[in-house]
Structures are given as structure tokens and as C-alpha cells.
Design a protein around this nucleic acid. Structure first.
Lengths: 129, 129
DNA sequence: TTTTCACTTGCATGGGTGTGCAAACGTTAG
DNA sequence: CTAACGTTTGCACACCCATGCAAGTGAAAA
């Protein structure tokens, strides 16, 4: 059985390689998800499974309309939601595929670097471990 | 072929059900990941694949030692890293399995709610859509 | 056109937090 | 013991941002 090669390196060396992890570990995405009000609104939208107006979503939370509007706009800017105008109503929908893909790819990328041996320093040279 | 039943509901109704999504959509986790410096440090640790001292990790970034120390402690508190003392050196390791599991479960939970038909309102009653 | 409705934006406020410096802490070496 | 090392913590500063209110925008109804 072919075992994947894995270089043992310092954090500084690691910083300069393996782009995929860095690209997926995007602080901008997490910044959009780090606020409790925002995750609550997003949770409602996710579970709702359809396009919802700002007014509808605002019923989930005890904050001001304007706050909900701002949060939804921010989530849309982060490409987590999409906004669609229908007359004077704006409906937001979750980008299920995109969000799922991003999170899954990140999970994969992280686990890909997990050490195979339990003791993380097995077989390493003194200098690098 | 058996198709999974999916309720069509308002965001407010959605807020009161489907716990798994809410539990996984935890703002505390994302709060730990929303800072650029922190994601950079985490990225280095992830790619490094072994336990690293604070000093080592600090070489990845142009910020002060104390800042790195604080960031790593915060990531450990968020259960993204684990700290281990070795003499006067403190080494941090990524909790690969936990992090991967969390992200993958979240991805699953989100995609589970994605509407199956492309138009999200197909077949819905007027009041709920 | 005027009014109403759904939403967005400007403004001010308060709280949280990332940062650097310096001091303190705990551990090991001399 | 003292000294050196690696790390943490206290403090001060600056900046960002979530919030609420009020005013503004744009579209549909009257």
C-alpha cells in the first residue's frame, strides 16, 4: 500500500507552501459567520430552504429591521447568500452548494495534513521536531 | 425512489426546529477563525503537521511574540488546538479530527436543507412562499 | 401624483478586540 | 543561589463593528 509522502517542516517553511489550505482558510468567510445574530439569521434561512424577504427573516430575531437588512447584505457580499429583487421585496437565499463545498473542501484540506502516526514526532529529525 | 420529506416553513418557524444546524453553526468557532493573523498561524500549524512551540509559530508572522501567544491560547480555548507543556516549552497541535468533523458535519447539515427542485417555491402554498 | 410599503443608509454610541511594550512567571542551566 | 530562556499577562491605545433611531430610496398601490 502506497503511503502518501509528507514533509516534516517548520511552521515558517509551511507558511510558504501548500496554498490550498491557506486559500480555504479564508478569514473573510469566517468573519461573516462570527456574529451570533448573523449565524441565527443564516440558520433560519438554511432551515427554511427557500427565498425569504428581509421582513420575514427579521421575525426570527429581536433586533431592528435595519440591523437584519445590514446582516443579510453582508452575508450576500460574503457570497453566502444571494439577493433577488421581486417588486419592492428583496428575497435572500442560501448558496447551499457553494457553502457546503467550501466547508467540505476545508475539512478535507485540514485532515489531509493530519499526521498518520499517533505521536506527531515519530521519526522526525531532532532539528525539525 | 423514496424522496425525503421537507417542510416548507417561515424563517420564524424554522428558528424553533432543526437543532443540529444551529448547534453546528456555532459563532464561537468562527469567531476564533475570523482574524487574519489567527488563520495564518493556524494554517502554518495545519500544514506543519506536528506540535510546534510558540517561538516556532511566531516565525510565520511579523507580529509580536505576545500576540502569537495570545492567539494560540485563544485557538486552544476554542478547541481548535491543544497545548502541551514540555519543560519550559509549550507546544500547540491542531485537533485535526475534531476540526474536520465539525466542518464536514456543518457542510452536511447545510446541504441537507438545500431545496431539491431548482425553483425554491415549487408546489408551496401561497402563505409560506 | 400622493401615499404606502419594503428596504437601505447616515449618524452616533458603546462594547469588544487586535496590537506592542514592558513586567511577571515558571522552568532549566551554571 | 543567580542567570537565561520561553511564555504569559497587565496595560494602554487604536480601531473595528454591532446596534438603534431617523431619514432617505425606490417601487407599487390609491
Amino acid at each position: 500500500m502506497q503511503v502518501k509522502k509528507r514533509r516534516v517542516m517548520s511552521p515558517k517553511q509551511a507558511a510558504a507552501c501548500c496554498r490550498p489550505v491557506d486559500d480555504l482558510l479564508d478569514p473573510a468567510l469566517f468573519k461573516a459567520l462570527c456574529d451570533p445574530t448573523r449565524t441565527r439569521l443564516l440558520g433560519c434561512l438554511v432551515k427554511c430552504g427557500r427565498a425569504c424577504s428581509v421582513t420575514e427573516v427579521a421575525e426570527c430575531c429581536s433586533v431592528d429591521f435595519s440591523v437584519v437588512s445590514r446582516h443579510l447584505a453582508l452575508l450576500a457580499r460574503a457570497e453566502i447568500l444571494v439577493a433577488r429583487r421581486e417588486g419592492r421585496v428583496v428575497r435572500y437565499v442560501v448558496r447551499y452548494a457553494r457553502l457546503g463545498k467550501l466547508l467540505r473542501e476545508l475539512a478535507d484540506a485540514i485532515e489531509e495534513h493530519a499526521p498518520t502516526e499517533e505521536p506527531c514526532c515519530a521519526g522526525g529529525r531532532r532539528g525539525s521536531c
